[in-house]
Simulated assay, not measured.
Amino acid sequence: MVRKKKNTMNTKARNLIAEDNPKSPIAEQYRTIRTNLQFTSVDNELETMLVTSAGPSEGKSMTTANTAAVFAQQQKRTLLVDADMRKPTVQYTFRIQNMLGLSNYLAGTQRVKDLVNTTHVDYLDVITSGPVPPNPSELLGSHKIEQFIKEAKQHYDMIIFDTPPVLAVTDSQVLSNYVDGVLLVVRSKQTEKEAAAKAKEKLDQAKANVLGVVLNDQEVTSSSNYYYYYGQ
């Protein structure tokens, strides 16, 4: 597959800890997420999934990026797609331009291979959101997204979408019908129980296959220190 050369940009990258500090206890937790996801899909291979949250600022995008990185570390050809066309972040995480991306494909003007950016992580490519469209939900619900996934599957073992919060817009619910499963992220001491329950309810209404919930930013106690020893 011919891939577009990565374009760098002068902005502060977010920390991809699964790649930058793979022996850390946090990186180990991302590998645990990967293992649990694989166990949940033992009967049906997990090839496509989306990651969402109940509300904003719950760690959804960094969970998505690090989960994609640990799948790539298994030498699975992994594609991370920024489907948050309202507040995209993938370009900041990987320091790439966001001139062309998913919205261009869904508008019918590009092919998947023309949108792929390589990253510093082996086996991991990304597609940014592209220019912000006026109608993200309608684009994600069109037949073009199904075509996008089918085309991407020809080149990748795992395709992971970063999507907007469930309670903010309907994008995640719409896209959930086209992927194998959904991972819901909540933040400790921030996400209200009612909000998490409402998010799960909306995903159930959309007939999404909820694979599990990630509790992000949980306070680390001394009992967690064994991870440091194990990772040496």
Rank of each mutant, 00 (worst) to 15 (best):
V169P: 01
I127C: 09
T67G: 05
T89G: 00
V166T: 14
A206P: 06
Q75F: 01
I145Y: 15
D180L: 00
Y230Q: 12
A83N: 06
T63L: 04
M62K: 02
Q97H: 10
Q38N: 14
D84N: 15
A27S: 15
P25V: 07
S57N: 15
F148P: 09
E146S: 15
T11H: 10
S176D: 10
D20V: 14
I17A: 02
T40C: 11
D157E: 13
A208V: 06
R3I: 15
V220N: 05
Y123H: 15
K60Y: 06
T48K: 09
V51T: 11
L184Y: 00
A208N: 05
P134D: 08
V174L: 05
V182W: 08
V81A: 09
D84S: 03
G59S: 05
N135Q: 07
F94R: 06
T67I: 15
N225E: 14
Q218W: 00
T191V: 03
V174E: 04
N66T: 06
G101V: 07
S61N: 05
A83Y: 12
L175E: 02
P25H: 04
M62A: 06
L203W: 10
V81E: 09
T52C: 14
T109W: 00
N98F: 11
A197Y: 11
E45G: 00
V185G: 08
S188C: 09
Y227A: 13
S103I: 05
R187S: 14
V121H: 00
Q232C: 02
L203D: 06
T64D: 08
P22F: 08
L211C: 02
A18T: 12
A68K: 01
V132Y: 03
T109D: 12
E146R: 15
V214D: 04
K6I: 13
L139K: 04
A72K: 05
Y105T: 03
L175N: 01
T163Y: 06
T40A: 15
N216D: 02
V112D: 10
A107C: 03
K153V: 00
P22N: 11
G108Q: 10
T221F: 12
I33D: 03
I96K: 04
S103C: 03
N104L: 07
L102V: 05
Q205Y: 10
K193N: 10
F94P: 05
S223H: 10
G181P: 04
A107N: 14
A206H: 09
Q154T: 07
Q73R: 04
N117T: 07
M62N: 13
Q110T: 14
D217L: 04
N7P: 12
S41H: 11
L80P: 03
A27W: 01
I96Y: 02
S53Y: 03
A13C: 08
Q73M: 14
Q91S: 14
A72V: 06
I159Y: 13
K189D: 14
L184H: 02
S53L: 02
L184V: 14
S176H: 12
T78R: 06
P134M: 06
G55E: 12
P134R: 09
K113D: 13
E19A: 15
S129C: 11
E192D: 08
Q218I: 09
